[in-house]
Design a protein around this nucleic acid. Sequence first.
DNA 1: GTCTGACTGACCGACGGTCAGTCAGTTTGT
DNA 2: ACAAACTGACTGACCGTCGGTCAGTCAGAC
Lengths: 239, 239
Amino acid sequence: MKRIVKNPEERRGELIASAQQFFYTKGYENTSVGDIVDAIGVAKGTFYYYFESKQAVLEAMVEEIVSQSIALLHKIVADQTLDAIRKWSQALTVVNNFKVEHKDQLLAFARVLQRPENVQLQHRLREESLKMVTPELAKIVYQGAEEGVFSTPYIDEAAEIALTIMESLSNTLTDILLHPENYTEPAAAAARKAAAAEYAIELVLGAPQGSLAIFSAGALDAWFNHIPHQYINTKGDVQ
Amino acid sequence: MKRIVKNPEERRGELIASAQQFFYTKGYENTSVGDIVDAIGVAKGTFYYYFESKQAVLEAMVEEIVSQSIALLHKIVADQTLDAIRKWSQALTVVNNFKVEHKDQLLAFARVLQRPENVQLQHRLREESLKMVTPELAKIVYQGAEEGVFSTPYIDEAAEIALTIMESLSNTLTDILLHPENYTEPAAAAARKAAAAEYAIELVLGAPQGSLAIFSAGALDAWFNHIPHQYINTKGDVQ
DNA sequence: GTCTGACTGACCGACGGTCAGTCAGTTTGT
DNA sequence: ACAAACTGACTGACCGTCGGTCAGTCAGAC
Protein backbone atom coordinates (compact mmCIF):
# COMPACT_ATOMS: atom_id res chain seq x y z
CA MET A 1 0.00 0.00 0.00
CA LYS A 2 1.10 3.51 -0.71
CA ARG A 3 3.03 5.03 2.10
CA ILE A 4 2.06 8.47 3.28
CA VAL A 5 4.15 10.03 6.00
CA LYS A 6 2.46 12.57 8.21
CA ASN A 7 3.30 14.80 11.09
CA PRO A 8 3.28 12.45 14.09
CA GLU A 9 0.85 14.63 16.03
CA GLU A 10 -1.57 14.55 13.14
CA ARG A 11 -1.31 10.77 12.82
CA ARG A 12 -1.84 10.32 16.52
CA GLY A 13 -4.85 12.59 16.35
CA GLU A 14 -6.25 10.64 13.42
CA LEU A 15 -5.88 7.38 15.32
CA ILE A 16 -7.59 8.76 18.42
CA ALA A 17 -10.41 10.24 16.33
CA SER A 18 -10.92 6.99 14.47
CA ALA A 19 -10.89 5.01 17.71
CA GLN A 20 -13.39 7.42 19.25
CA GLN A 21 -15.71 7.04 16.30
CA PHE A 22 -15.75 3.27 16.68
CA PHE A 23 -15.87 3.24 20.48
CA TYR A 24 -18.90 5.52 20.37
CA THR A 25 -20.77 3.45 17.84
CA LYS A 26 -19.63 -0.14 18.34
CA GLY A 27 -18.27 0.05 21.85
CA TYR A 28 -14.77 -0.55 23.13
CA GLU A 29 -14.75 -4.34 23.24
CA ASN A 30 -16.35 -4.73 19.84
CA THR A 31 -13.89 -2.43 18.16
CA SER A 32 -10.77 -4.12 16.86
CA VAL A 33 -7.48 -2.40 16.24
CA GLY A 34 -8.05 -3.47 12.65
CA ASP A 35 -11.21 -1.39 12.48
CA ILE A 36 -9.37 1.67 13.75
CA VAL A 37 -6.49 1.49 11.30
CA ASP A 38 -8.49 0.38 8.26
CA ALA A 39 -10.76 3.41 8.58
CA ILE A 40 -7.85 5.80 8.12
CA GLY A 41 -5.84 3.60 5.78
CA VAL A 42 -2.76 2.79 7.80
CA ALA A 43 -1.27 -0.51 8.87
CA LYS A 44 -1.73 -2.12 12.23
CA GLY A 45 1.91 -1.61 13.03
CA THR A 46 1.36 2.12 12.82
CA PHE A 47 -1.14 1.87 15.61
CA TYR A 48 1.38 0.13 17.81
CA TYR A 49 3.99 2.66 16.85
CA TYR A 50 1.85 5.34 18.49
CA PHE A 51 0.13 3.41 21.26
CA GLU A 52 1.34 0.64 23.52
CA SER A 53 -1.99 -1.16 23.49
CA LYS A 54 -5.63 -0.83 22.65
CA GLN A 55 -6.26 0.24 26.23
CA ALA A 56 -3.75 3.07 25.77
CA VAL A 57 -5.72 4.76 23.01
CA LEU A 58 -8.78 4.64 25.24
CA GLU A 59 -6.82 6.41 27.97
CA ALA A 60 -5.63 9.04 25.53
CA MET A 61 -9.15 9.62 24.29
CA VAL A 62 -10.60 9.92 27.80
CA GLU A 63 -7.88 12.32 28.78
CA GLU A 64 -8.63 14.52 25.78
CA ILE A 65 -12.36 14.61 26.40
CA VAL A 66 -12.06 15.31 30.09
CA SER A 67 -9.42 17.98 29.72
CA GLN A 68 -11.62 19.82 27.23
CA SER A 69 -14.54 19.79 29.66
CA ILE A 70 -12.30 20.89 32.49
CA ALA A 71 -11.15 23.90 30.51
CA LEU A 72 -14.77 25.07 30.25
CA LEU A 73 -15.37 24.51 33.93
CA HIS A 74 -12.16 26.20 34.90
CA LYS A 75 -13.16 29.36 33.05
CA ILE A 76 -16.26 29.66 35.19
CA VAL A 77 -14.47 28.87 38.42
CA ALA A 78 -11.77 31.43 37.70
CA ASP A 79 -14.28 34.18 36.90
CA GLN A 80 -13.71 36.85 39.54
CA THR A 81 -17.06 38.53 38.99
CA LEU A 82 -19.25 35.62 40.05
CA ASP A 83 -20.25 34.64 43.54
CA ALA A 84 -20.18 30.98 44.56
CA ILE A 85 -23.86 30.29 43.99
CA ARG A 86 -23.79 31.82 40.54
CA LYS A 87 -20.69 29.82 39.68
CA TRP A 88 -22.41 26.67 40.79
CA SER A 89 -25.52 27.24 38.73
CA GLN A 90 -23.61 28.49 35.72
CA ALA A 91 -21.40 25.42 35.71
CA LEU A 92 -24.45 23.21 35.74
CA THR A 93 -26.23 25.28 33.13
CA VAL A 94 -23.30 25.17 30.74
CA VAL A 95 -23.04 21.41 31.11
CA ASN A 96 -26.75 20.93 30.72
CA ASN A 97 -27.05 23.19 27.68
CA PHE A 98 -24.23 21.34 26.03
CA LYS A 99 -25.89 18.05 26.76
CA VAL A 100 -29.27 19.15 25.47
CA GLU A 101 -27.73 20.49 22.30
CA HIS A 102 -26.18 17.12 21.62
CA LYS A 103 -29.05 15.17 23.08
CA ASP A 104 -29.50 12.59 20.34
CA GLN A 105 -25.82 11.96 19.96
CA LEU A 106 -25.34 11.65 23.71
CA LEU A 107 -28.26 9.29 24.11
CA ALA A 108 -26.85 7.08 21.38
CA PHE A 109 -23.55 7.16 23.18
CA ALA A 110 -25.19 6.38 26.50
CA ARG A 111 -26.89 3.42 24.93
CA VAL A 112 -23.56 2.06 23.78
CA LEU A 113 -21.85 2.94 27.05
CA GLN A 114 -24.44 1.05 29.00
CA ARG A 115 -23.65 -2.27 27.39
CA PRO A 116 -21.69 -4.57 29.67
CA GLU A 117 -18.71 -4.79 27.34
CA ASN A 118 -18.19 -1.04 27.58
CA VAL A 119 -17.91 -0.71 31.28
CA GLN A 120 -14.24 0.04 30.74
CA LEU A 121 -15.02 3.22 28.90
CA GLN A 122 -17.70 4.21 31.37
CA HIS A 123 -15.46 3.62 34.33
CA ARG A 124 -12.47 5.49 32.92
CA LEU A 125 -14.59 8.50 32.01
CA ARG A 126 -16.16 8.50 35.45
CA GLU A 127 -12.89 8.08 37.32
CA GLU A 128 -11.03 10.68 35.33
CA SER A 129 -13.74 13.31 35.50
CA LEU A 130 -14.19 12.76 39.21
CA LYS A 131 -10.48 13.24 39.72
CA MET A 132 -10.39 16.42 37.64
CA VAL A 133 -13.70 18.02 38.54
CA THR A 134 -13.54 17.62 42.31
CA PRO A 135 -10.78 20.22 42.82
CA GLU A 136 -12.64 22.78 40.72
CA LEU A 137 -15.84 22.16 42.59
CA ALA A 138 -13.96 22.42 45.88
CA LYS A 139 -12.83 25.91 44.89
CA ILE A 140 -16.44 26.95 44.52
CA VAL A 141 -17.34 25.42 47.86
CA TYR A 142 -14.40 27.15 49.48
CA GLN A 143 -15.47 30.49 48.02
CA GLY A 144 -19.01 29.83 49.19
CA ALA A 145 -17.79 29.15 52.69
CA GLU A 146 -15.93 32.46 52.69
CA GLU A 147 -19.02 34.25 51.41
CA GLY A 148 -21.01 32.64 54.18
CA VAL A 149 -23.49 30.86 51.89
CA PHE A 150 -22.01 27.40 52.38
CA SER A 151 -21.06 25.82 55.65
CA THR A 152 -19.32 22.51 56.21
CA PRO A 153 -16.36 21.32 58.25
CA TYR A 154 -15.24 19.12 55.35
CA ILE A 155 -14.92 21.31 52.27
CA ASP A 156 -13.01 19.00 49.94
CA GLU A 157 -14.94 15.95 50.99
CA ALA A 158 -18.25 17.79 50.67
CA ALA A 159 -17.33 18.74 47.11
CA GLU A 160 -16.53 15.16 46.30
CA ILE A 161 -19.73 13.88 47.85
CA ALA A 162 -21.78 16.50 46.01
CA LEU A 163 -20.20 15.40 42.76
CA THR A 164 -20.87 11.76 43.57
CA ILE A 165 -24.51 12.58 44.17
CA MET A 166 -24.76 14.40 40.87
CA GLU A 167 -23.12 11.53 39.07
CA SER A 168 -25.52 9.10 40.64
CA LEU A 169 -28.40 11.33 39.58
CA SER A 170 -27.02 11.50 36.10
CA ASN A 171 -26.91 7.70 35.93
CA THR A 172 -30.46 7.44 37.16
CA LEU A 173 -31.74 10.01 34.68
CA THR A 174 -29.94 8.26 31.85
CA ASP A 175 -31.59 5.03 32.86
CA ILE A 176 -35.00 6.70 32.86
CA LEU A 177 -34.37 8.17 29.44
CA LEU A 178 -33.17 4.90 27.97
CA HIS A 179 -35.79 2.71 29.61
CA PRO A 180 -38.85 4.89 30.22
CA GLU A 181 -41.00 1.77 29.96
CA ASN A 182 -39.79 0.76 33.42
CA TYR A 183 -41.35 3.84 34.98
CA THR A 184 -45.01 4.66 35.25
CA GLU A 185 -44.31 8.37 34.96
CA PRO A 186 -40.80 8.92 33.68
CA ALA A 187 -40.84 12.68 33.81
CA ALA A 188 -42.21 12.74 37.34
CA ALA A 189 -39.71 10.15 38.53
CA ALA A 190 -36.89 12.18 37.04
CA ALA A 191 -38.13 15.35 38.67
CA ARG A 192 -38.32 13.66 42.05
CA LYS A 193 -34.82 12.21 41.79
CA ALA A 194 -33.46 15.59 40.77
CA ALA A 195 -35.21 17.29 43.66
CA ALA A 196 -33.86 14.71 46.11
CA ALA A 197 -30.34 15.16 44.79
CA GLU A 198 -30.62 18.91 45.04
CA TYR A 199 -31.91 18.66 48.59
CA ALA A 200 -29.09 16.32 49.59
CA ILE A 201 -26.41 18.48 48.03
CA GLU A 202 -27.68 21.57 49.80
CA LEU A 203 -27.50 19.68 53.08
CA VAL A 204 -24.02 18.38 52.43
CA LEU A 205 -22.68 21.79 51.45
CA GLY A 206 -24.58 23.50 54.21
CA ALA A 207 -26.30 25.75 51.71
CA PRO A 208 -29.71 27.35 52.32
CA GLN A 209 -32.56 25.25 51.03
CA GLY A 210 -33.43 26.04 47.44
CA SER A 211 -30.28 28.08 46.89
CA LEU A 212 -28.72 25.56 44.56
CA ALA A 213 -30.51 24.43 41.46
CA ILE A 214 -29.41 21.32 39.63
CA PHE A 215 -31.78 21.97 36.80
CA SER A 216 -33.04 25.41 36.10
CA ALA A 217 -36.82 25.30 36.11
CA GLY A 218 -38.00 23.63 32.95
CA ALA A 219 -34.64 22.27 31.95
CA LEU A 220 -35.79 18.75 32.62
CA ASP A 221 -38.59 19.21 30.11
CA ALA A 222 -36.01 19.51 27.39
CA TRP A 223 -35.05 15.96 28.19
CA PHE A 224 -38.39 14.37 28.78
CA ASN A 225 -40.79 16.23 26.56
CA HIS A 226 -38.64 16.17 23.45
CA ILE A 227 -38.81 19.90 23.01
CA PRO A 228 -35.69 21.70 21.88
CA HIS A 229 -34.17 23.69 24.68
CA GLN A 230 -34.41 27.09 23.05
CA TYR A 231 -38.21 26.89 23.05
CA ILE A 232 -38.39 26.49 26.78
CA ASN A 233 -38.64 29.53 28.98
CA THR A 234 -37.76 29.63 32.61
CA LYS A 235 -41.27 28.86 33.73
CA GLY A 236 -41.13 25.59 31.85
CA ASP A 237 -44.08 26.52 29.64
CA VAL A 238 -43.86 26.01 25.96
CA GLN A 239 -43.94 29.32 24.20
CA MET B 1 -10.77 -38.45 28.79
CA LYS B 2 -12.85 -40.32 31.28
CA ARG B 3 -16.38 -39.10 31.42
CA ILE B 4 -17.90 -38.37 34.80
CA VAL B 5 -21.51 -37.34 34.91
CA LYS B 6 -22.59 -35.26 37.85
CA ASN B 7 -25.72 -33.69 39.17
CA PRO B 8 -26.15 -30.57 37.02
CA GLU B 9 -26.42 -28.30 40.03
CA GLU B 10 -23.15 -29.62 41.37
CA ARG B 11 -21.39 -29.19 38.03
CA ARG B 12 -22.71 -25.69 37.70
CA GLY B 13 -21.51 -24.95 41.20
CA GLU B 14 -18.08 -26.37 40.40
CA LEU B 15 -17.81 -24.18 37.34
CA ILE B 16 -18.81 -21.05 39.22
CA ALA B 17 -16.41 -21.86 42.05
CA SER B 18 -13.57 -22.49 39.64
CA ALA B 19 -14.32 -19.29 37.77
CA GLN B 20 -14.45 -17.34 41.02
CA GLN B 21 -11.06 -18.72 42.06
CA PHE B 22 -9.49 -17.52 38.84
CA PHE B 23 -11.34 -14.21 38.67
CA TYR B 24 -10.16 -13.40 42.19
CA THR B 25 -6.53 -14.24 41.50
CA LYS B 26 -5.96 -13.51 37.81
CA GLY B 27 -8.83 -11.19 37.08
CA TYR B 28 -11.73 -11.57 34.69
CA GLU B 29 -10.04 -10.67 31.43
CA ASN B 30 -6.95 -12.74 32.10
CA THR B 31 -8.93 -15.84 32.91
CA SER B 32 -9.73 -18.02 29.93
CA VAL B 33 -12.58 -20.46 29.74
CA GLY B 34 -9.84 -23.04 29.31
CA ASP B 35 -8.44 -22.18 32.73
CA ILE B 36 -11.83 -22.63 34.33
CA VAL B 37 -12.57 -26.02 32.82
CA ASP B 38 -9.05 -27.46 33.07
CA ALA B 39 -9.00 -26.83 36.81
CA ILE B 40 -11.97 -29.09 37.38
CA GLY B 41 -11.19 -31.53 34.59
CA VAL B 42 -14.07 -31.04 32.19
CA ALA B 43 -14.14 -30.10 28.54
CA LYS B 44 -14.77 -26.64 27.23
CA GLY B 45 -18.04 -27.75 25.74
CA THR B 46 -19.30 -28.51 29.22
CA PHE B 47 -18.79 -24.90 30.16
CA TYR B 48 -20.93 -23.80 27.25
CA TYR B 49 -23.48 -26.41 28.11
CA TYR B 50 -24.05 -24.60 31.42
CA PHE B 51 -23.34 -21.00 30.50
CA GLU B 52 -24.09 -19.01 27.40
CA SER B 53 -20.85 -17.09 27.59
CA LYS B 54 -17.94 -16.19 29.79
CA GLN B 55 -19.83 -13.07 30.83
CA ALA B 56 -22.72 -15.26 31.99
CA VAL B 57 -20.65 -17.10 34.58
CA LEU B 58 -19.55 -13.73 35.94
CA GLU B 59 -23.17 -12.70 36.30
CA ALA B 60 -24.00 -15.94 38.07
CA MET B 61 -21.10 -15.49 40.43
CA VAL B 62 -21.99 -11.89 41.25
CA GLU B 63 -25.59 -12.86 41.85
CA GLU B 64 -24.52 -15.59 44.27
CA ILE B 65 -22.20 -13.34 46.24
CA VAL B 66 -24.65 -10.48 46.50
CA SER B 67 -27.61 -12.66 47.43
CA GLN B 68 -25.58 -14.19 50.26
CA SER B 69 -24.72 -10.76 51.62
CA ILE B 70 -28.30 -9.62 51.27
CA ALA B 71 -29.50 -12.56 53.33
CA LEU B 72 -27.28 -11.41 56.19
CA LEU B 73 -28.47 -7.84 55.88
CA HIS B 74 -32.08 -8.87 55.62
CA LYS B 75 -31.87 -10.74 58.91
CA ILE B 76 -30.86 -7.55 60.68
CA VAL B 77 -33.45 -5.41 58.93
CA ALA B 78 -36.23 -7.87 59.76
CA ASP B 79 -35.27 -8.04 63.44
CA GLN B 80 -38.27 -6.67 65.31
CA THR B 81 -36.34 -5.98 68.50
CA LEU B 82 -33.95 -3.39 67.09
CA ASP B 83 -34.56 0.29 66.61
CA ALA B 84 -33.44 1.99 63.41
CA ILE B 85 -30.17 3.34 64.75
CA ARG B 86 -29.15 -0.02 66.16
CA LYS B 87 -30.02 -1.71 62.89
CA TRP B 88 -27.89 0.77 61.04
CA SER B 89 -24.86 0.30 63.22
CA GLN B 90 -25.27 -3.45 63.41
CA ALA B 91 -25.46 -3.76 59.66
CA LEU B 92 -22.24 -1.81 59.32
CA THR B 93 -20.57 -3.74 62.12
CA VAL B 94 -21.41 -7.09 60.61
CA VAL B 95 -20.08 -6.02 57.24
CA ASN B 96 -16.96 -4.54 58.75
CA ASN B 97 -16.23 -7.55 60.95
CA PHE B 98 -16.58 -9.81 57.97
CA LYS B 99 -14.24 -7.66 55.97
CA VAL B 100 -11.64 -7.49 58.71
CA GLU B 101 -11.74 -11.23 59.19
CA HIS B 102 -10.96 -11.72 55.52
CA LYS B 103 -8.75 -8.69 55.30
CA ASP B 104 -5.82 -10.22 53.44
CA GLN B 105 -7.99 -12.09 51.00
CA LEU B 106 -10.11 -9.01 50.34
CA LEU B 107 -7.11 -6.79 49.83
CA ALA B 108 -5.71 -9.25 47.33
CA PHE B 109 -9.05 -9.22 45.60
CA ALA B 110 -9.20 -5.44 45.65
CA ARG B 111 -5.76 -5.32 44.09
CA VAL B 112 -6.96 -7.52 41.25
CA LEU B 113 -10.27 -5.70 40.95
CA GLN B 114 -8.51 -2.39 40.59
CA ARG B 115 -6.72 -3.37 37.42
CA PRO B 116 -8.26 -1.76 34.36
CA GLU B 117 -9.10 -5.08 32.72
CA ASN B 118 -11.33 -6.02 35.64
CA VAL B 119 -13.59 -3.06 35.67
CA GLN B 120 -16.32 -5.38 34.44
CA LEU B 121 -16.26 -7.35 37.65
CA GLN B 122 -16.07 -4.23 39.77
CA HIS B 123 -18.95 -2.61 37.99
CA ARG B 124 -21.24 -5.62 38.12
CA LEU B 125 -20.64 -6.09 41.84
CA ARG B 126 -21.28 -2.42 42.47
CA GLU B 127 -24.40 -2.24 40.36
CA GLU B 128 -25.94 -5.40 41.71
CA SER B 129 -25.27 -4.62 45.35
CA LEU B 130 -26.60 -1.10 44.95
CA LYS B 131 -29.77 -2.49 43.45
CA MET B 132 -30.24 -5.06 46.18
CA VAL B 133 -29.03 -3.13 49.23
CA THR B 134 -30.91 0.12 48.65
CA PRO B 135 -34.37 -1.31 49.43
CA GLU B 136 -33.12 -2.87 52.66
CA LEU B 137 -31.50 0.35 53.70
CA ALA B 138 -34.66 2.24 52.82
CA LYS B 139 -36.58 0.07 55.27
CA ILE B 140 -34.25 1.17 58.04
CA VAL B 141 -34.63 4.80 57.06
CA TYR B 142 -38.40 4.42 56.95
CA GLN B 143 -38.39 2.88 60.41
CA GLY B 144 -36.13 5.67 61.64
CA ALA B 145 -38.50 8.27 60.27
CA GLU B 146 -41.37 6.64 62.14
CA GLU B 147 -39.31 6.55 65.31
CA GLY B 148 -38.54 10.21 64.84
CA VAL B 149 -34.77 9.80 64.71
CA PHE B 150 -34.47 10.34 60.97
CA SER B 151 -36.11 13.08 58.98
CA THR B 152 -36.14 13.53 55.25
CA PRO B 153 -38.79 14.19 52.62
CA TYR B 154 -37.08 11.70 50.28
CA ILE B 155 -36.75 8.40 52.11
CA ASP B 156 -35.86 6.07 49.23
CA GLU B 157 -33.59 8.57 47.60
CA ALA B 158 -31.87 9.39 50.87
CA ALA B 159 -31.15 5.69 51.37
CA GLU B 160 -29.67 5.48 47.92
CA ILE B 161 -27.56 8.56 48.40
CA ALA B 162 -26.33 7.32 51.76
CA LEU B 163 -25.30 4.07 50.15
CA THR B 164 -23.56 5.92 47.35
CA ILE B 165 -21.61 7.91 49.90
CA MET B 166 -20.57 4.76 51.72
CA GLU B 167 -19.51 3.17 48.51
CA SER B 168 -17.46 6.17 47.58
CA LEU B 169 -15.86 6.06 51.03
CA SER B 170 -15.14 2.40 50.59
CA ASN B 171 -13.39 3.11 47.31
CA THR B 172 -11.33 5.84 48.87
CA LEU B 173 -10.31 3.69 51.82
CA THR B 174 -9.36 0.86 49.51
CA ASP B 175 -7.18 3.24 47.57
CA ILE B 176 -5.50 4.40 50.76
CA LEU B 177 -4.87 0.83 51.84
CA LEU B 178 -3.47 -0.21 48.49
CA HIS B 179 -1.42 2.91 47.91
CA PRO B 180 -0.52 4.33 51.32
CA GLU B 181 2.61 5.82 49.77
CA ASN B 182 0.43 8.47 48.13
CA TYR B 183 -0.67 9.80 51.50
CA THR B 184 1.45 11.52 54.08
CA GLU B 185 -0.61 10.09 56.90
CA PRO B 186 -2.75 7.24 55.60
CA ALA B 187 -4.53 6.49 58.86
CA ALA B 188 -5.37 10.13 59.47
CA ALA B 189 -6.58 10.61 55.89
CA ALA B 190 -8.81 7.58 56.23
CA ALA B 191 -10.23 8.80 59.52
CA ARG B 192 -11.02 12.19 58.04
CA LYS B 193 -12.75 10.71 54.99
CA ALA B 194 -14.78 8.42 57.22
CA ALA B 195 -15.78 11.28 59.47
CA ALA B 196 -16.82 13.37 56.47
CA ALA B 197 -18.90 10.53 55.09
CA GLU B 198 -20.55 9.99 58.43
CA TYR B 199 -21.32 13.67 58.74
CA ALA B 200 -22.80 13.80 55.24
CA ILE B 201 -24.94 10.72 55.78
CA GLU B 202 -26.35 12.11 59.00
CA LEU B 203 -27.29 15.27 57.15
CA VAL B 204 -28.89 13.42 54.28
CA LEU B 205 -30.93 11.17 56.55
CA GLY B 206 -31.76 14.02 58.89
CA ALA B 207 -30.25 12.12 61.81
CA PRO B 208 -28.84 13.83 64.90
CA GLN B 209 -25.16 14.54 64.63
CA GLY B 210 -23.05 11.68 65.89
CA SER B 211 -25.98 9.29 66.03
CA LEU B 212 -24.76 7.15 63.16
CA ALA B 213 -21.36 5.55 63.25
CA ILE B 214 -19.78 4.23 60.08
CA PHE B 215 -16.93 2.72 61.98
CA SER B 216 -17.29 1.86 65.59
CA ALA B 217 -14.51 3.60 67.47
CA GLY B 218 -11.25 1.85 66.77
CA ALA B 219 -12.53 -0.21 63.89
CA LEU B 220 -10.40 1.73 61.45
CA ASP B 221 -7.31 0.74 63.43
CA ALA B 222 -7.93 -2.84 62.44
CA TRP B 223 -7.38 -1.75 58.89
CA PHE B 224 -4.51 0.64 59.24
CA ASN B 225 -2.56 -0.65 62.19
CA HIS B 226 -2.49 -4.28 61.14
CA ILE B 227 -3.93 -5.49 64.39
CA PRO B 228 -6.41 -8.35 64.28
CA HIS B 229 -9.88 -7.13 65.08
CA GLN B 230 -10.50 -9.29 68.14
CA TYR B 231 -7.73 -7.49 69.99
CA ILE B 232 -9.40 -4.15 69.61
CA ASN B 233 -11.89 -2.98 72.20
CA THR B 234 -14.43 -0.29 71.69
CA LYS B 235 -12.14 2.43 72.96
CA GLY B 236 -9.69 1.58 70.22
CA ASP B 237 -6.92 0.76 72.69
CA VAL B 238 -4.93 -2.38 72.21
CA GLN B 239 -5.53 -4.71 75.07
C1' DG C 1 -32.94 -51.93 24.75
C1' DT C 2 -34.06 -47.29 24.29
C1' DC C 3 -33.79 -42.67 25.31
C1' DT C 4 -32.14 -38.42 27.09
C1' DG C 5 -29.26 -34.99 28.51
C1' DA C 6 -24.65 -34.49 30.32
C1' DC C 7 -20.37 -34.29 28.34
C1' DT C 8 -16.40 -34.27 24.81
C1' DG C 9 -12.65 -32.07 22.16
C1' DA C 10 -11.24 -30.96 17.49
C1' DC C 11 -12.06 -27.10 15.16
C1' DC C 12 -12.95 -22.11 13.65
C1' DG C 13 -12.53 -17.19 12.85
C1' DA C 14 -11.04 -13.19 15.03
C1' DC C 15 -8.33 -10.77 17.96
C1' DG C 16 -4.31 -8.19 20.20
C1' DG C 17 0.18 -7.83 19.62
C1' DT C 18 5.22 -8.39 17.33
C1' DC C 19 8.95 -7.37 14.45
C1' DA C 20 12.11 -7.54 10.61
C1' DG C 21 12.13 -4.92 7.01
C1' DT C 22 10.84 -0.81 3.81
C1' DC C 23 10.66 3.72 2.36
C1' DA C 24 10.00 9.15 2.62
C1' DG C 25 12.17 12.95 3.97
C1' DT C 26 16.11 15.28 6.10
C1' DT C 27 20.96 15.95 7.00
C1' DT C 28 25.62 15.61 5.89
C1' DG C 29 29.80 15.25 3.07
C1' DT C 30 32.02 16.60 -1.14
C1' DA D 1 24.24 20.49 -6.80
C1' DC D 2 24.07 15.82 -5.96
C1' DA D 3 24.24 11.62 -3.66
C1' DA D 4 25.14 8.89 0.26
C1' DA D 5 23.95 8.16 4.89
C1' DC D 6 20.73 8.41 8.24
C1' DT D 7 16.34 8.62 10.89
C1' DG D 8 11.98 7.46 12.25
C1' DA D 9 7.43 6.80 10.33
C1' DC D 10 5.24 3.09 8.46
C1' DT D 11 4.19 -1.77 6.67
C1' DG D 12 1.89 -6.32 6.79
C1' DA D 13 2.82 -11.19 7.28
C1' DC D 14 2.89 -13.72 11.15
C1' DC D 15 2.05 -15.63 15.99
C1' DG D 16 -0.22 -17.48 20.05
C1' DT D 17 -4.48 -17.31 22.32
C1' DC D 18 -9.03 -16.71 22.94
C1' DG D 19 -14.26 -17.24 23.04
C1' DG D 20 -17.30 -19.94 21.02
C1' DT D 21 -19.38 -24.12 18.01
C1' DC D 22 -21.07 -28.57 17.05
C1' DA D 23 -21.30 -33.30 15.51
C1' DG D 24 -20.85 -36.87 18.04
C1' DT D 25 -20.26 -40.01 22.39
C1' DC D 26 -21.55 -42.12 26.49
C1' DA D 27 -23.59 -42.90 31.47
C1' DG D 28 -27.45 -43.77 33.80
C1' DA D 29 -32.61 -43.77 34.23
C1' DC D 30 -36.59 -46.18 32.86
